[in-house]
Computed example of a mutant assay.
Amino acid sequence: MSWSRRLWRTLPIALVIVLAAATAAFAGEAPTSVNVEQVTGFTAGVFPAYCGSGATVQVKFGYISNPDNPGTTEARVLLLDGSDTEVGSTLWHTVPDGDKTALGDWQSLNVVTPTGAPDATQYKIVLQVANSNSSPNWAEDIQAPGLEVDLIGPGPVSGVYVTGGVPTSDNTPQFIWSDAADDRAGIRSYWVEVDHSPTAPASAAMTDTMSDGHIWTSGALADGSDWYFHIRAQDKAFNYGDAVTFGPFTVDTVAPT
C-alpha cells in the first residue's frame, strides 16, 4: 500500500478556510495575507467561503506525515473552476513532520483567486499532501464549492443615535446603530468617523472598529454644533457598503449659569 493511500485511509485530511486581505487591498492594490475570519470544518452552511476577485485566500489543513520518511512531506493547494480547469495554485511546500490534526497544529498555504472574476463565481479547493519520495502519488481532499466571489457590498446601517440624545454634554459620545444587511459573506466590521463635514470620507480613510458590534464610543470632542458621525459596513469579502451620516449634532459641556 502506498503511503498516500495509507494517509488517506488512516485520517481524512481536514480543511479550514481563512479569508485574507491586507490594508493595501482596500486601496485596490494586490492583497497580502492577514487572517480575518476562520471557518471551521465541513459542517452544513460553512462552505463556500466568500472572497473578492484577485484575493489572497489562506487554506489551513491537518494531516499525519509518513513516519518512515521524515522531512519529506509536501503539500499544495489548487483552485479549479466550474469545468475543473486549474485557475490558481501554490507550489509544493515542505510541511512539518508528525500528527498535525489538532486544530492548533494545522498548517497553511496561501493561494490567489483569479482577477476579474464576476460576482458569484465559484471555485473548488483541492488540497494535496504527498511524500516527495513517492510523488506524484498524494492524498487529496476536495471541497466543492470551496470559494465564491462576492463583489456586492452590504447595505447601509440604520437607526443611528447617541446615547442620551443630542445635544449632548458628553464629549466622548457613544453611538449606537442597527445591523446592516449583507447577502452572503456577512458583516466583518463597521468603519466610522466623527468630523465637521456633512460628507463621509472615503472608505479606507475611516476608522475600522474591528467589530461587527453596534456600539462605538468617540474620542474626546471639542464643544461645537457642527459635528457629524459617519458609518459604513464592510463584509467578510472586504466589500464596503454605502455610508450613513448622522448630524449635525451639538456637543456642549458648559453648564448653564
Results as ranks from 00 to 15, higher is better:
Y228N: 11
W3A: 13
M206F: 08
G98D: 05
W216G: 13
H93W: 14
P12F: 07
G71F: 04
T115A: 09
W138A: 11
M206K: 06
A27D: 15
L11V: 13
N35F: 15
P31D: 12
D226M: 09
N133W: 07
G165T: 03
A22F: 11
G153D: 00
A21E: 13
T113K: 01
N171M: 04
D212T: 05
I152A: 08
V112M: 09
L78M: 07
D179E: 11
I187K: 02
G159C: 02
T73Y: 04
W191T: 05
A49E: 01
V192W: 14
P173S: 03
G104M: 01
V126E: 01
Y63D: 02
S33C: 11
I17R: 04
T257K: 12
G104R: 04
L79W: 03
P198F: 01
Y123L: 02
S134L: 13
S197T: 10
Y240M: 14
H196G: 10
D182N: 02
S132V: 12
Y161I: 08
R6L: 06
L80F: 11
S169I: 07
V16Q: 11
Q58M: 06
P12K: 00
V251T: 06
P31I: 07
Y123K: 00
A20L: 08
E74D: 12
A117W: 10
L79V: 04
G45T: 06
A25H: 15
D179C: 05
D105W: 01
D242G: 06
V95P: 03
V192S: 04
T113D: 06
E74W: 08
G52P: 01
T199K: 03
A22W: 13
D119G: 04
Q58F: 00
L147T: 03
T168G: 00
P136D: 07
Q234V: 15
T113L: 03
V95N: 00
Y123S: 02
G219T: 10
G155D: 13
K100W: 04
D84S: 14
P154M: 03
Q174R: 14
P12D: 04
W106P: 05
E74N: 09
A14Y: 09
P12G: 04
L91Y: 10
W138Y: 15
R9S: 08
S108L: 06
Y50I: 05
A139H: 10
D212V: 02
R76E: 03
N137R: 13
Q122A: 13
M1P: 11
V36S: 14
E29I: 08
E148M: 12
F42L: 15
S211A: 01
